[in-house]
Design a protein around this nucleic acid. Structure first.
Lengths: 215, 215
DNA sequence: TCTCGGAAACTCGTATACGAAATTCGAAAT
DNA sequence: ATTTCGAATTTCGTATACGAGTTTCCGAGA
């Protein structure tokens, strides 16, 4: 029952590869992204690379220097804070919308994610925990039935991956967070949307305080 | 004191032209968008058109048919509702953030927009009123100092333009709305962020009820 | 040694070319 | 008249080519 593979174009593959490389920190902030260089690395012509970079530019992952191509955008504390401000408003909404739409399969999947996150916490696997964090929140976005939330937050999480890659300790990297995830999800399962949303609100509001703060 | 013109590339110009044409309803939903056709119409080669369409695809303004190019996305009531759900969360936040950052020039500009919107209401100019509506909310996004809000809502308003182009009466097309705008802005000017945010919340929550509802 | 000028090399944006997939259209068969 | 099969046409995705603007580099002059 796999959704049919849409046969990605080279532009899409290039975009995905670049975005992932940037967010995983394989390209350093400020580093120049040459089209020839990327094209050779991915074994495509410059044409798909040019298109992909245009999209990354519109999404603030790279910056146009005006003269010779683009550079990887610096990791911006302002952007990080902007995203958390937005999350403080969007996440509780997503929970409200998702709670009455939760399904047995979703419950199963949610519990699996919480268990996985908690387990990876114990085995001290930062990137695994981050992925579980993303998965947990993305599950809620998808359950919300709101396509705008899904799309918007997908991009925002990519930005967050960058910020969190810089510091080893990130908001999801504590036991407290996974206790909160569990509590939020339990409230959702029990159908108490208001309680779940309130728990989510404080979850997000407290999260940035847990990050090491630096200019 | 004009910001220097960034010398837009053909890709950007093509993207802007296509987006505006789609949102203004010049291309009908479901209509095929041929690259050659667009290229000729804008006097550019297919290359910038291809890039621009790739971006529009990622932003849901056009849909890939898989076989021969793309079609203009149908105006989707679900999308409209999703955006209003998001706005119900984002707009009050934007007001909270913007209120303590308001400047004398911003006050001047805000009053000008409200006056213009009210005036165009009276002269029965729907597209002018819509533009004033967009301007009013965009001013608040910009004052919020939150780049994510600015970027996200710019795209969302383009989607809304499409929805509202379908129905002659849209949420901004009533006197009540402009009375509310004025009240919100006055609360912001007086520095009462909580009151302004509350007023904005009900402004957004009530708005969709004012639109003619149709499948 | 340091500065300056200009030529060579690089890199990007855009145009054009090419191959593959899909659609269209017409002719032959029923 | 209708259906079917395949060749011609259309159109896209991607590669390659080209022109313009920048940067780099090196040698001449101070």
């Amino acid at each position: 029952m796999e959704a049919i593979a849409p046969a990605k174009s080279l532009v899409e593959k290039t975009y995905d590869a670049l975005l992932d490389a940037i967010c995983a920190g394989e390209f350093r902030p400020g580093e120049r992204l040459g089209q020839d260089e990327v094209a050779e690395r991915l074994n495509v012509s410059r044409q798909p690379v040019n298109s992909a970079i245009a999209m990354l530019k519109a999404q603030r992952f790279v910056i146009d220097t005006g003269r010779r191509g683009v550079i990887v955008a610096p990791v911006d504390r302002q952007l990080f804070e902007s995203i958390y401000q937005v999350r403080s408003a969007i996440e509780p909404l997503a929970v409200e919308l998702a709670t009455p739409r939760i399904s047995p399969e979703a419950i199963k999947r949610g519990r699996e994610i919480v268990a996985r996150g908690t387990r990876l916490m114990q085995s001290n696997d930062p990137s695994g925990v981050l992925q579980a964090d993303i998965d947990f929140h993305t599950l809620i976005y998808e359950l919300s039935g709101n396509a705008i939330i899904v799309d918007t937050m997908r991009l925002n999480w990519q930005h967050l991956r960058r910020s969190m890659g810089e510091v080893l300790r990130f908001p999801g990297m504590t036991f407290q967070v996974w206790k909160e995830h569990r509590a939020i999800f339990n409230a959702m399962v029990s159908g108490d949307a208001a309680d779940a949303a309130a728990k989510m609100r404080s979850h997000i509001t407290e999260a940035p305080r847990r990050v090491v703060r630096e200019a």
